[in-house]
Every structure is written in C-alpha cells, then in structure tokens.
Design a protein around this nucleic acid. Structure first.
Lengths: 204, 204
DNA sequence: TATAACATGAACACCACTGTATGACTTAGT
DNA sequence: ACTAAGTCATACAGTGGTGTTCATGTTATA
C-alpha cells in the first residue's frame, strides 16, 4: 500500500530512489508537517516527477514515512530491557527513545491530516502496548501511582519527552541533559502520593 | 498596529465587525492554526472583503487574535491569588487557567508562523513572569525541587496543561477531572527528590 | 434626511501545491 | 549491446488561499 507497483520486480535504482524519498519525507515532515512534495523530492535528491512515479498521492508518501518511523522505533525499542525494577526500566526506555518518540509525534501531526483514523490506530497499536504494560507492572508493584489512569501516565511520559525536544529546539535545554530531565520529571510524576520521589542520578 | 485606521473615528458598526472577526479568529485559529481568512470571516458572520477592510494582512488578524487572547488571559489570571502556600497557589493557578493556556498555545502555533519572534516574545513576557515568580518562591521555600531549572518546571506546567486539553479532545479525559489530573501530576513532578509527593484531593 | 462610513458579492491577478502527460535521456540487468 | 525500467525537465490543468478593485447596496450618525 505504500509504493505504487503490484507484481513487477523493481530495479535496484528505483529502490534506492524510493528509500531516499521515504527517508527525506521522514526528516522534512518531522520538522514541519506541511512540507511540500517538492521540498521532500529536493531533500531526497530526486526529481518531483520521480516521486510521483513511485507514489500515487501525498497520502502514500506520508504513510510510508510514518510506517518507516514506527518500524525503526519498534526495532530500537525492542533492544531495550523493560524487565526488572520499573523505575530503572522506565529510565532505560526514556534514554533509548526520547528523541525517537518526538520525531514520531511530529510525523503524527502530518499523518493525522492525511491518513484515516483507522490507519493511525493500527500504526500505534504496537508501540503503545509496550509502555502500557510497563506502567501497569509498575503500578502492580506499588512503584507507580494508581490514582491516575494508565492512559494518562503514558500520555505524560510522551508529552514530557516531546516537550524536552522542543526545549532543545528553543535553546533552553542541552541534548546531554534531556534524558536526565525527562527521567527526573516523569519518575516524580509517577510516584504515588505520600511516597518519596526517587533520586535519579547522584544518590546521597 | 492591529487595525487599519490611524486617526479616523470608527463607527459603532465597524467596531462590532472588528470584534466579531477577532473573536472568530481566536476560535478558528485555536482549533486549527492554518484556518483561512475566508473561514474566519464566515465564522464571524462577515464578508471576506469586510475583513480586508479592517486588516491589511493575515498577520494583522493573527496578531489581533493573539493580543486579545493574552489580554483576556492576563485579566483572568490577575484575579487568582498566588500568595500563601505555593502548592495551593499553584493549584489555584491551574484551576483558573488550564484551558486558557491551552487555547493560547494553539493560537501560538499560528502566531509563530505569521509573526516575528520579537513580537511573540513581547506578548509572552507578562504571563510567563507570573508563573516564574511563583515557582521561584516555591523553590525558595523548599517546596519545589531545585535540581531542575525554573524554565524547565514552567515548561512542564504548561506542557501538562496543554496535553490535558488534547486528552479531552481525544475523549480519554473528562473536563471535570482535568484540573485534578494536572494538579496531581505537576505537584508530584515539582516535588524535591527524597520528599514525599503531596496528597491533592482525597486524603486517607 | 442627507451623507459619509460601512458591508458585500463578484471578479481579478497572483502564487504555491497537487497531480498528470510527454519526450528525451540515462542506467540496470540479461 | 540491447532493451526495459527508471530519471528528469518542461509544461499543463486544477484547486485553494491571498490581496485588490469596483459597483451596488445598507446603516450609523449628525
């Protein structure tokens, strides 16, 4: 559904172009959701007509870029160990994926105007489940608060990650400290009322 | 700088139109930053040409809508008591302004593409200072954490407010519980490491 | 009621983006 | 080396937004 062909085998040449286009689309749409196809084609080092030779519409380009981002995200996050202490697991998740999640969110803005709601749900099913089970486990173990819904906590995690990326873009935060800031903030936000918030980096 | 005239006194008729346009612009741009002037004029119950009779460009409309939103925000927030216990003060601030801040942020997206960076800084100077001093006072009193910068904490506050509004739009949160969720989350995130997170609503 | 201000629809030129078509050129695969 | 596949520049039609002009009505206000 991403590319144009049905059964014909593509030439190595064409595959290279397609890959460049999808990659450029991910970058351009990640920066600005209303990037034009001309802009994407130019960033891919390819003619605009060539883009239309492989994708029937703008929606197909967005879909391909979004799918690729989700795939790469899943791939990267599969390498993260989410077992053991939920606090440490969450810290590992944040460390591995905070800038990844941000780009996915920027792409999402483009996808939400170009793709159907069902398609977006499908693309999000996998990644969302991973964090949800981690949060659920943390709640079951008494480490994360239960007075707020799982959906809200997951939303907070993603929101803080995203905002950190924007703070960096605005020059108010350095990339080195981003993960620390996110972790410190989210772990505190997840702490059950009455319990002390965990120390994240330097312990006394 | 907002409207078109210089010295001529406007008719009551015209003032009514201008007000309707600015109000409609606030609503339309609050929903979608790329709302067209045709759309805004229609929402204002006014002809498109009439809009151009009062505003020279799209930027002027955006500026007027943004200025109005900031003014109304300042007005509403001036009524909030930010003295006393910083925790309670922050809770009052959230209660009063969370949906307000969200609309301002949605407008901000439109403003950032149409207005100069300097103009945006000017518009934000007032509102930002208010929260910053509150956060600074909370830190000085040992209630808020000092291991994260003031700018980051303020950013977290606004980000969580904004995300709550989006959760409501997505149907995952009811407006009644929004302020509670935001307060519970932000107060926990602001708590210094090692200290217990405060109970917000029901105490055991 | 006179008149200047205002509102309005229709029409215009301009621009950027989308999507398609054509024809010449280059490259991959056998 | 031959051919099908791919690339690309140019050009085209269609769409939708921005600003402007104009001629005709409508309304506030003195």
């Amino acid at each position: 559904m991403g590319s144009k062909n049905s059964t014909a085998a593509k030439r190595a040449d064409a595959l290279r172009s397609i890959d460049a286009i999808v990659q450029a689309a991910g970058e351009c749409l990640g920066r600005s959701p209303e990037a034009s196809l001309s802009e994407i084609a130019r960033a891919a080092g390819v003619g605009r007509v060539t883009l239309y030779a492989h994708f029937n519409s703008r929606a197909e380009v967005v879909d391909a870029a979004m799918s690729r981002a989700v795939d790469r995200g899943n791939e990267a996050l599969d390498a993260v160990d989410l077992t053991g202490d939920p606090l440490l697991a969450l810290a590992r998740y944040i460390e591995a994926g905070w800038q990844l999640v941000n780009q996915a969110r920027a792409l999402l803005a483009a996808a939400q105007r170009e793709l159907s709601a069902g398609r977006i749900r499908d693309l999000h099913a996998g990644p969302a489940a991973r964090v949800e089970t981690l949060v659920a486990r943390g709640r079951a173990e008494g480490v994360f608060r239960t007075d707020l819904s799982i959906a809200w906590l997951v939303n907070i995690l993603h929101t803080v990650m995203h905002s950190a990326a924007e703070e960096i873009r605005a020059g108010r935060l350095t990339p080195n400290h981003a993960a620390d800031h996110i972790t410190a903030t989210v772990l505190a936000a997840f702490t059950p009322p009455g319990k002390p918030v965990p120390q994240t980096s330097g312990e006394a």
